[in-house]
Design a binder for these strands. Structure first.
Lengths: 116, 116
DNA sequence: TGCCATACATCGTAGTTCGAGGTAATATGC
DNA sequence: GCATATTACCTCGAACTACGATGTATGGCA
C-alpha cells in the first residue's frame, strides 16, 4: 500500500512534462528519451519504455506531438517534435507545476496555519 | 484524457504529504484538514473530503497516525496525531519531494544536459 | 420549519505509472 | 560462424491515486 520501491507517487504528470520539455529543444525518438530523462535528472527520475512510449502515443493522438519515421542503419526510428498545441500544453504544465510547487514548498516550510 | 478541470496530475502523493505535515504541528480532525489545506496553500491545492478521509484511514492503518474520538457540541470529531513512524514517513516524503523537485526544476530551466 | 454548515464516511470511475514481456535488427566478442 | 548485448519499437495487466457524487446525522439560524 505504501511500500513501492520504484518511483515515488509525486510522479504523476511528470513524464508528460519532461517529455514535452526535452522535445522542445530538439527532435528525439523514444528510446533516446528514456536515456535523456535519466541523464538530465541525474538518475533522480528514471522512466521505463513502458512509460515513455504510451505517453508519446497519447500526446501525438492529442495533437501535441508530430512524428516522422526515419530509417537509421537499417533500424527505424520514430522521431517526435512538439506542435504549437504541444508548446501551449507545455507552458500550462510548467505553470501549474510551479504553482503547486510553491504551495507545497510553502506548506512544508511555513507549517503554521493561522486559524481565522 | 487531458482536460480534467480539477486538480492537475502532479498531485499524486501530495495529499499524504500535506496531511502529515499539518498534523505534525497540531492535532486536527478531517473536516478541519480539508479547510486547512486550502488555507495553507492559498487555494492552490483543494482536496475534497473524498480524498482526505481515505488517506487518513490508510495512514492510521499503516501506523503513521493515531486517532481519538472527542465529542464537541454533540458532534463527534476524530482527532489525528502523528506517530513516530509517521514522522519518519513525513521525513522521507519531504526528502523525496525535494529531490524530485530539484530534478524537474532543473530540467525545466536547464534544458541543455551538461554532462558531469 | 427549512436551510446551511459541520462532520463523518464510502463507492465507482477515471487516469497514471509500472514491470514484464514480445519482436527484430545491428554490433560485439569469441 | 555463433551467442550475446544493445538498439528500438511496442502492448498488456496489475496496482494505486484521486475525484466527484452521494449518504447519514447533528447543530445553528432565520
Amino acid at each position: 500500500m505504501a511500500g513501492k520501491s520504484t518511483n515515488p507517487n509525486f510522479m504523476n504528470g511528470v513524464p508528460e512534462l519532461l517529455i514535452l520539455r526535452l522535445l522542445k529543444d530538439r527532435e528525439m525518438y523514444g528510446y533516446e528519451l528514456v536515456q535523456a530523462i535519466r541523464a538530465v535528472t541525474r538518475d533522480a527520475v528514471s522512466l521505463g519504455e513502458g512509460v515513455v512510449y504510451p505517453v508519446l502515443h497519447a500526446l501525438e493522438k492529442d495533437g501535441a506531438l508530430k512524428s516522422r519515421r526515419k530509417p537509421v542503419n537499417g533500424r527505424t526510428r520514430v522521431y517526435y517534435t512538439v506542435t504549437p498545441a504541444g508548446q501551449k500544453r507545455l507552458g500550462a504544465l510548467v505553470d501549474t507545476w510551479t504553482k503547486l510547487n510553491d504551495a507545497v514548498g510553502g506548506a512544508i516550510r511555513g507549517g503554521a496555519y493561522v486559524a481565522a
